[in-house]
Write a protein that binds this DNA or RNA. Structure first.
Lengths: 146, 146
DNA sequence: CCTTGACTTCAAGTACACTTGAAGAATTAG
DNA sequence: CTAATTCTTCAAGTGTACTTGAAGTCAAGG
């Protein structure tokens, strides 16, 4: 069993962050009679999962939802971890694709030197923006409604 | 000349955001005798630049520093815009590369099912983490000191 | 002229992911 | 045994990028 300080030392995640994760229900601890946290050694894996998932771009809320699908009481098996991270690959691929699109758009815009909201087809995919009232700056990622 | 509402309509950026940008010194306006903001039409281009730069991952502070290198009083030329966005391409490329590394690491970790902070060479690039006190979770992007 | 809508400032609120500090209890090293 | 370290909770603060609301002013249409 690890104390919060030891878990922090092994994961590189601050004790304050670990307590925060516990408060948000991402990790759980047993307590000593004095109320000190004790973590099973497998908890390092959970923390690693959290950090990795954040790196992929998930919010703590999303990570919690994924972790909640894990069995309680028993350490997760390798295939269960794999199931959780399966969607990450797609997510990363999508992000890479978005960056490629941005890259292409950037080259185009440097090439034409426009950077004009009215004319640039990169910044202005629908060739007409700010039409419908609600959505601000949908060329930051939102689709312009097809 | 455009009012703040017109600029918002043309850019898709909320008036509150435009005022916020002005407060932070990213954009500037002249005022009518009554104190209402008036923007030259080229301001849409500046706002587009800001949104684009944010999309690339720059903070408003960084964007301001880039915009501060532009000449005042005269609308920037195409080559000046191009100069500003020149570094973006590298930045995007670096981000894509990081995601590719993450992707590879993810595949490896699913393959070996480890996700262990002590053994995984993806999460633990230096094969020894949490060594030096200061840096928490340096496998989220920090380098493990070479 | 009068109402409606757009504009003004300023303070405070929001969301995310934590960190910091205070006050005190428990554990560990010497 | 004592001093230093680590732990506890809880409240409040941090940074980024805004948004929202209040209270009031200005401009345009009928």
């Amino acid at each position: 069993m690890l104390t919060v300080g030891e878990l922090a030392a092994r994961t590189g995640v601050a004790t304050s962050a670990l307590r925060f994760y516990e408060e948000r229900g991402l990790i759980h601890s047993t307590r000593t009679p004095a109320g000190h946290r004790r973590y099973p050694r497998g908890m390092t894996r959970v923390v690693a999962f959290i950090v990795f998932a954040q790196r992929v771009g998930l919010s703590l809320e999303e990570i919690k939802m994924e972790l909640d699908t894990l069995p309680v009481g028993r350490p997760p098996r390798a295939d269960e971890w794999a199931r959780l991270s399966a969607t990450w690959s797609e997510r990363i691929a999508a992000e890479i694709e978005a960056l490629h699109r941005l890259q292409r758009g950037l080259t185009d815009c440097i090439g034409c030197g426009c950077l004009s909201l009215e004319r640039c087809h990169i910044l202005n995919p629908g060739d007409r923006m700010a039409s419908r009232g609600a959505g601000p700056r949908f060329w930051m990622g939102d689709e312009p409604e097809e």
